[in-house]
């Protein structure tokens, strides 16, 4: 797999909501080769603490050389990254991992939870190259509205129908994103593309199995390298006879490949 190391200049920083940021960087090689679902490894400081790079899904690519990541401040690394300003450079490796497989002749259901919506915008744009607007549905869930309001707007601007549900009811209906799934019409072959926290994905996979829908999920784990060298990102395989590695076999996996422990 072709991967690159680029010193990418930050061209735009957008504070989407409290602790939620989008960074646009100029990384021509990585942007050119990125496919929806793939990720990059970003060095958040020049020093040694935090030591490891942080993995981020590619949120969008634009203009042929720009790449965007969407993240929430949760620890030292993301805090450092949120403190960076346009004009500064970040050291990025990628693109890594398996991308989403675009299904054919299906109703495409994009299911995102919180910051897990990150790779779905890029996916939607790719799907729209070959599919009509009405064959895509976007279901977004979050704890609270401001976590997804901005991204929901981006989907809407693509002409897509977006259903929103929040745990606190501050935006859209009140409930979990899986509640929206149970209301889906089943007159067509369905492909679900899920990304979000692990418990949500497990619930999404459960509903897909019950309804015999195909489902791909994008998993997130800790990883040290992204290169399948550290083997830190192991997830138990469905047959319980070994592990899949999120960086190399994923991050996008068919729901049937995972044991869902």
């Amino acid at each position: 797999m072709q991967a690159f190391k680029e010193l990418a200049e930050i061209v735009r920083k957008e504070k989407v909501a409290e602790d939620l940021y989008r960074l646009t960087v100029k990384a021509p090689d990585i942007a050119e080769f990125s496919r929806p679902g793939q990720f990059v490894m970003v060095r958040t400081v020049e020093g040694m603490d935090p030591l490891l790079r942080r993995p981020f899904s590619v949120h969008q690519v634009s203009g042929g050389d720009m790449l965007q990541i969407f993240f929430k401040v949760i620890g030292k690394g993301t805090k450092a990254l949120a403190g960076m300003e346009p004009g500064q450079q970040v050291d990025i490796l990628g693109p890594f991992g398996q991308s989403f497989t675009m299904a054919e002749d299906s109703l495409h259901i994009l299911v995102g939870g919180g910051i897990g919506t990150a790779p779905l915008l890029f996916l939607a744009k790719h799907l729209l190259k070959k599919n009509e607007v009405y064959s895509l549905r976007v279901l977004l869930g979050a704890r609270t509205g401001n976590e997804i309001a901005r991204v929901a707007e981006d989907f809407t601007n693509l002409g897509l129908t977006v259903d929103i549900i929040t745990e606190d009811g501050s935006l859209g209906r009140q409930g979990l994103v899986t509640d929206l799934m149970t209301e889906l019409q089943q007159d067509k072959q369905i492909m679900v593309y899920g990304c979000g926290p692990y418990p949500m994905l497990r619930a999404v996979a459960g509903i897909c199995r019950e309804n015999s829908w195909a489902c791909q999920v994008s998993l997130e784990t800790m990883m040290a390298c992204g290169l399948a060298a550290c083997l830190g990102c192991a997830v138990m395989r469905a047959d319980m006879q070994g592990y899949v590695y999120v960086c190399k076999d994923g991050p996008v996996l068919d729901m049937n490949e995972v044991a869902w422990l």
């Binding site: 800790m222 040290a224 083997l231 830190g232 997830v235 070994g242």
Partner: peptide, 23 residues
């Protein structure tokens, strides 16, 4: 060898802890 169950790694100050289990 399959290696150890996750969580296999953790970051510490200027360091990396691993229990990959020789996978």
């Amino acid at each position: 060898r399959q290696g150890n169950p996750p969580q296999r790694i953790a970051e510490t100050a200027c360091g990396l802890l691993n229990a990959i289990g020789l996978a």
